[in-house]
Amino acid sequence: MQGDALGTQDVRDPVLLRLIATEMARIHAIHAHNGCIPKPNLWIKMRKYFSLVATEFTDQASNTRIREEVPSKEVLEKEMAWMKEHLSQLGSPVVLCHNDLLCKNIIHNLKEGYVRFIDYEYSSYNYQAFDIGNHFNEFAGMSELDYALYPSRELQLDWLHTYLKAYKRFTKKVEDVSQRELETLYVQVNKFSLASHFFWGFWALIQAKYSSIDFDFLGYAVLRFDQYFKTKPNVMALKIPE
């Protein structure tokens, strides 16, 4: 595929973010389930990852870190159950999702003026708001997480308005995007961003045990869980408009 992988500054560019939002809407509008009502993969996958999380490592330093810096499995399981109960009631549509839209998985063809996504390893039917919230979390980067880069409300609303407008077009709906629709999606996305932290936190703990890649997966997991607990109070205070 011709083009360049994006970085954390690129996804904030006004032109590129609208291309990304439109491309995600196009994928979300694909119906590949032969008329069946698809079910979200999130909770099944998260539960599977949780069951594979290691609590003991071969080196003492990692054992100390996981005891001192990672919440206990009891706490994590309780939070996971709470998320499933709360987020499942938000009314986010289940659509075909990429589920791993980090910056480097977005290829920009400058000459042709479009973006395409790559690496569909984690794609599945999932909550619309999870896919978007997960992408917003990825604004912080991967190797050196900086959550100061998480998109502002203003930037999110710009992105989400473009997305909703495109999604309506791809699903052949003619009505304009209402303010209520926009605010509803904003709340859903930010709440599902919490689930994204847990999903990749579990993933990182598994990688910390079994991966041969030279990366501090344990440290990455710590940062994801920390961000979850840091942002949870403000995010949960958001209300879907009546």
Rank of each mutant, 00 (worst) to 15 (best):
E79C: 03
M80L: 14
M80R: 10
A81D: 12
W82K: 10
M83R: 07
M83I: 06
K84F: 05
K84N: 07
K84Q: 14
E85D: 08
H86Y: 13
H86K: 15
H86G: 01
H86W: 11
L87Q: 09
L87I: 10
S88Y: 08
S88H: 09
L90R: 14
L90D: 12
G91Q: 08
P93D: 04
V94Q: 09
C97S: 06
C97G: 00
H98G: 04
N99E: 12
D100N: 10
L101Y: 11
L102K: 15
L102F: 15
C103S: 08
K104D: 10
N105I: 09
I106G: 03
I106E: 05
I107Q: 15
I107K: 13
I107V: 15
K111P: 02
G113M: 08
Y114H: 14
R116A: 13
I118M: 12
I118R: 14
D119E: 09
D119H: 12
Y120D: 03
E121S: 02
E121Q: 09
E121C: 04
Y122E: 00
Y125F: 11
Y125I: 00
N126E: 05
Y127N: 03
Y127Q: 02
F130W: 09
F130A: 02
I132Y: 02
N134K: 03
H135L: 00
F136S: 06
N137V: 10
F139K: 03
F139Y: 15
A140G: 03
G141C: 01
S143G: 01
L145H: 08
L145Q: 12
D146C: 03
A148W: 10
A148L: 08
A148V: 04
L149M: 12
E154W: 09
E154Q: 11
L155H: 11
Q156E: 15
D158K: 11
W159N: 07
W159H: 11
W159C: 06
H161D: 06
H161R: 15
T162D: 03
T162N: 11
T162W: 05
T162H: 09
